[in-house]
């Protein structure tokens, strides 16, 4: 309601780890910040019938330490522990990270393979947004100006699916993030989910790479196996990498190829070990 009244002059503020940096450097200016941390209960991490519901003001640290998240979403807890540094994690929120839509985000990439959803609340209605439909460009989302995300809903991987996440970079923010999860049945890849982020404005799933791997025999999927090589080649194409301060587009495409192979092999290596991380 406040957000609607202020019509553009106010911004939602949770951790502020992104917003305040942009305001300090003069890139953004607002007359008022609306502190969502003052909404009671919005920092809760709780179970629902599909998985774990992470309130919009839950910090990265809260997620990485939460017993329920660690049990049901061990890969998310692991990746949350690798976001930025401890000080940013103690203040910054998972939902804020997604809503700020900075292209170099670990959770934005990872949550694509969890097929997470967001609860968004407007003045008169609420809706569910698949995480892949939130971000539309660098720093841009599909949220209406008077809408706010109230929770991130993350279902665990289906039984038998294991995941892994890799990132690479020499800067504070990652240059590349790759997430992969694989389910194996009768020695074959029954299902696979792959996402790539940071190399382009918006993280994305890689359906062509997934299709190439589905049905492949797992014992044939060593490094340099034809199907694996093809999946990684397609990833380098479909990542649609752009040049920025982190490097040239062809460099990032090369990273995509190399890191997808490593990440898939790690995800396969974790298969059968009982956990999703």
């Amino acid at each position: 309601m406040l957000l609607a009244q202020e019509s553009g002059a106010a911004a939602l503020y949770a951790g502020g780890t992104e917003l305040l940096l942009a305001m300090k450097s003069g890139l953004l200016a607002y007359d008022a910040l609306i502190n969502v941390k003052s909404i009671a209960g919005l920092d809760a991490v709780a179970a629902d019938d599909r998985g774990v519901v992470i309130g919009a003001s839950a910090t990265h640290s809260a997620v990485e330490r939460d017993a329920l998240a660690r049990e049901r979403l061990p890969l998310l807890a692991e990746v949350e522990h690798s976001v930025a540094n401890a000080r940013v994690r103690n203040v910054g929120t998972l939902a804020g990270n997604l809503c700020f839509a900075e292209p170099h985000s670990d959770p934005a990439t990872l949550l694509l393979i969890y097929e997470a959803e967001l609860d968004a609340q407007g003045p008169s209605a609420s809706r569910r947004i698949p995480v892949g439909e939130l971000q539309t460009n660098s720093y841009e989302t599909s949220l209406a100006p008077d809408e706010m995300v109230t929770a991130v809903r993350v279902p665990p991987f289906p039984a038998g699916m294991s995941g892994a996440y890799s990132k690479f970079g020499r800067h504070h923010r990652p240059t590349l993030g790759v997430a992969a999860a694989v389910a194996v049945e009768d020695g074959r890849v029954a299902d696979v989910r792959i996402a790539i982020g940071c190399v382009s404005p918006v993280a994305r799933r890689l359906p062509r790479s997934e299709d190439v791997l589905r049905g492949e025999r797992v014992d044939g999927l060593a490094a340099d196996a034809p199907a694996l090589r093809e999946a990684c080649r397609l990833a380098a194409e479909d990542a649609d990498a752009v040049a920025d301060l982190h490097g040239e587009a062809d460099y990032k495409a090369h990273l995509a190829r190399v890191f997808l192979e490593r990440t898939l092999l790690r995800a396969l290596g974790r298969n059968g070990s009982g956990g999703d991380a």
């Binding site: 502020g16 780890t17 401890a86 000080r87 103690n90 203040v91």
Partner: peptide, 13 residues
């Protein structure tokens, strides 16, 4: 340390 946890005082209001 804010309530025992490290934070960056350069940016925290």
């Amino acid at each position: 340390l804010l309530d025992g946890q490290p934070v960056s005082s350069c940016t925290l209001p």
